[in-house]
């Protein structure tokens, strides 16, 4: 059974080439392809500044983390950014274990992340 994840995109008024993407559910190897498709569809359409709201992202495994790092790298290559906000304690711990806190731009909440765009 594929893990459930839903991505909800919202406009960020006044911010050019930017969107807020809310991640809802679990991110793992079974659904990473659909997430890749959605995020790259944004990046390739010119939305190169993405704020990812992880408030409702319950779970992420190493495959999911790998792809988050890839989003960050790809956005930077397009002169944009992939910022993460509202990370819960459990997910943050996994990010921290692999030392990715220095590679990902992580903010306490969405407003803080949006201010830096």
């Amino acid at each position: 059974m594929q893990s459930q994840i839903e991505l909800k995109c919202e406009e960020l008024p006044g911010k050019a080439a930017a969107k807020l993407v809310r991640f809802i559910g679990d991110l793992d190897a079974t659904n990473v392809e659909s997430v890749v498709e959605e995020i790259f569809s944004l990046l390739n359409s010119g939305v190169v500044n993405i704020v990812a709201d992880f408030e409702k992202l319950r779970y992420v495994n190493s495959t999911g983390l790998g792809i988050l790092l890839h989003f960050s790298k790809s956005a930077k290559e397009k002169q944009g950014c992939f910022k993460i906000a509202n990370v819960n304690e459990n997910v943050y711990e996994i990010i921290e274990i692999i030392g990715a806190t220095t590679l990902l731009e992580i903010f306490d909440d969405v407003d803080d992340a949006v201010k830096t765009l």
Binding site: L65, G66, I67, L68, L69, H70, S72, K73, I98, G99, A100, L103
Partner: peptide, 9 residues
């Protein structure tokens, strides 16, 4: 971790 295994890939 080698820059997080070359950024996750």
């Amino acid at each position: 971790l080698r820059r997080v295994q070359e950024a996750g890939l």
